[in-house]
């Protein structure tokens, strides 16, 4: 069990994270590129059209991975907020800074691709009375709020704590998004994946699975890259960063 404690303490060290995570950043980046390319071509070319929805169904291969990872990013954000408040680990704040722009982009993209899929399927781009749609819009506003809150508070430590509190409070919205299709009447179809069953034949869900994993790799890449950027900015006066930028190969 000792390695868990050791890793936990090392994760709190910006310098260790910066060095150790460099190969992970590259690995996640390459994996994301390959998986998303394979999954998308598979979904667009080889997967069969849906017998009810026809070819517009193919939007699932990009829409579902996007919204899944937008919600996972928010859960990571909430967990980082908790770590910051409980253990006062500064790296948790670095993680929060890194996740917000990614989550914002993914939620906005998820809403957009959902509207584009809704138009041929339900006959409407948007429906204000639909709980799944509105709770996802709230997720976007939470990301906006977290971004605005950090800009609004000049003292870095206060901003970090305020963002952590908001991130944790916003976690309430995650189960609401998940169960919205069961609790309320909705246009939105039920979950594609669940722990017990997959509501699709293999020829349809395999490309979806590839794109979901690809999107998580993209999340890993963007999060690590942005955390390392934030570490450089925060540690710019330390000797290890000064040494690092002096090396000709990093410029």
């Amino acid at each position: 069990m000792g390695w868990i404690t050791t890793t936990w303490h090392r994760l709190g060290s910006p310098r260790w994270f910066y060095g150790m995570m460099a190969p992970w950043q590259t690995g996640f980046g390459i994996a994301a590129l390959v998986l998303l390319a394979v999954g998308s071509v598979w979904g667009l070319v080889w997967a069969p059209a849906d017998y009810q929805q026809g070819d517009s169904f193919r939007i699932i291969y990009i829409h579902v991975p996007t919204v899944i990872v937008a919600q996972s990013a928010y859960m990571t954000l909430g967990a980082a907020g908790l770590v910051l408040l409980v253990w006062r680990m500064k790296m948790a704040d670095v993680a929060m800074v890194a996740i917000v722009p990614f989550g914002m982009a993914m939620t906005a993209l998820g809403l957009f691709t959902g509207a584009v899929w809704g138009r041929p399927t339900w006959g409407t781009w948007w429906e204000w009375t639909d709980a799944r749609l509105v709770s996802t819009l709230i997720l976007l506003f939470l990301y906006f709020g977290l971004h605005a809150l950090r800009q609004a508070i000049p003292a870095a430590e206060s901003a970090a704590r305020a963002c952590a509190v908001l991130a944790i409070a916003g976690l309430v919205n995650i189960p609401i998004i998940k169960y919205s299709v069961e609790w309320w009447t909705t246009l939105h179809q039920g979950s594609t994946f669940s722990m017990r069953r997959i509501n699709m034949p293999a020829v349809m869900y395999l490309p979806l699975l590839v794109n979901v994993i690809g999107m998580y790799c993209l999340f890993g890449y963007v999060m690590i890259a942005r955390m390392r950027t934030e570490i450089l900015r925060r540690e710019r006066d330390t000797s290890w960063v000064v040494e690092l930028v002096r090396r000709p190969d990093v410029r």
């Binding site: 980046g29 998303l36 998308s40 667009l44 059209a49 026809g54 070819d55 517009s56 193919r58 939007i59 990009i62 829409h63 996007t66 722009p101 990614f102 982009a105 906005a108 993209l109 957009f112 691709t113 584009v116 899929w117 138009r119 041929p120 993209l218 890449y221 963007v222 890259a225 942005r226 950027t229």
Partner: peptide, 26 residues
Amino acid sequence: MGRHGLYVWLAYGSSFVTLLLLVIGT
């Protein structure tokens, strides 16, 4: 895409551009 080309390509095009900008920005 069986009359749904506009929607399918709009969804994939917007996704491609968003992900590309995200990676370039990062």
